[in-house]
């Protein structure tokens, strides 16, 4: 399927140069950010889980960049990259991982619960497919209030075998809710491959049970993901039609910090996906179109590196929440919503 998709390089430039470079820089930022979190984990600055988006940058950045300012995003726990792609400052994502007050959830959420309501990011959730009904509800609210926005709901391939997935797809089509369901199919739910978990391994086909439009795209090609998501979000906003989009991608590291990712995948398979590294693919595309040269790419890396150093510095310097605030945020205080 990956081989069959149309390569971005066959098409004319779909976006202005600045936007293309922005896509690249966001992908590099997420890659380097995640690599830094591995380092910080080893140094015990970060505790608990860490589910990385490494390898999935094109799927994440392509989809999130297609959102308008008004649109809303909600995701699973593999969420660092989604927050960053939505524009959440990397320093507040890093500070969240450090468990600091300056984190985007005040250090209460950690790796799995990034959030940025002001930017329309309604959070990362730790129970597989548990947030899909919430996405339907966010879309319902937008519809109810007559708001010009759509909801993008991202989850992994592992989420498609649980009831909440089916219930949410059914409700969204039944009620014509403006939502795009995004399967980031990285081939494995933890260590169980799609083929060992799903009777229908072509996950996008499941939408047909709900008379819902769906398609599958090359998740290593940022432009394909962007183009499809943008089109489907427009359809959600304008026609009040939900849809299901599957991106075929791969996570290079293991499921989380405790998994090397090697017991259930062959070296050859991992190598094969590395051949289609989303950042290298897009870098090559930009070079072929004369948009980027090696020197300019190096500048991107340098800018990213600086941002990440600043993120770590911010996270280090941000204070830990005081134990006195243990019960803060459990219930609404007077005057809050």
């Amino acid at each position: 399927m990956v081989e069959q998709s149309t390569r971005a390089t066959d098409r004319p430039l779909p976006l202005p140069r600045a936007n293309l470079l922005h896509l690249l820089e966001q992908m590099v930022l997420i890659r380097r950010f995640e690599e830094k979190t591995m380092e910080m984990l080893a140094l015990n600055r970060i505790r608990g889980y860490c589910h990385w988006n490494i390898g999935e940058e094109a799927s994440v950045v392509g989809a999130v960049t297609a959102l308008t300012e008004n649109d809303r995003l909600i995701t699973s726990y593999r969420d660092h990259g989604f927050a960053i792609a939505r524009g959440t400052p990397p320093e507040t994502v890093m500070a969240e991982l450090f468990g600091k007050e300056g984190g985007c959830a005040g250090g209460r959420g950690g790796s799995m619960h990034m959030v940025d309501i002001a930017r329309g990011y309604f959070g990362g959730y730790g129970i597989v497919a548990g947030h899909l009904p919430l996405a339907a509800g966010l879309a319902l609210a937008a519809d109810y209030l007559g708001e010009d926005r759509a909801v993008l709901c991202a989850f992994g391939d592992g989420a498609t075998n649980i009831g909440a997935f089916h219930e949410s797809l059914n409700l969204s089509k039944l009620w014509h809710l403006p939502v795009v369901w995004l399967i980031t199919n990285n081939q494995y739910g933890m260590g169980t491959s799609v083929h060992r978990a799903s009777a229908e391994a072509e996950l996008y086909k499941r939408a047909c049970a709900y008379e819902m439009y769906s398609e599958q795209v090359d998740g290593m090609d940022v432009l394909s993901v962007y183009e499809a998501t943008e089109r489907l979000l427009r359809r959600a906003r304008e026609d009040r039609e939900p849809s299901l989009l599957e991106t075929l991608t791969y996570r290079y590291p293991g499921h989380s910090y405790a998994d090397a990712g090697k017991s259930y995948r062959t070296k050859e398979e991992i190598e094969r996906w590395h051949q289609r590294d989303p950042i290298r693919l897009f870098q090559r595309y930009l070079e072929e179109h004369g948009i980027l040269n090696q020197g300019e790419y190096d500048l991107v890396e340098r800018r990213v590196s600086q941002k990440i150093e600043e993120a770590v510095k911010f996270a280090e310097e941000s204070p830990f929440p005081s134990p006195d605030t243990l019960f803060k945020y459990l219930y609404a205080e007077e005057g809050t919503k």
Binding site: P133, A136, G137, L138, L140, A141, Y144, E167
Partner: peptide, 21 residues
């Protein structure tokens, strides 16, 4: 009216509340 879909519509209620309803 909802289908028989408790997890779905109860969760949709949560999302709707987060969306301003």
């Amino acid at each position: 009216d909802t289908p028989i879909s408790e997890e779905g519509f109860l969760g949709a209620g949560i999302g709707a509340a987060m969306g301003g309803l």
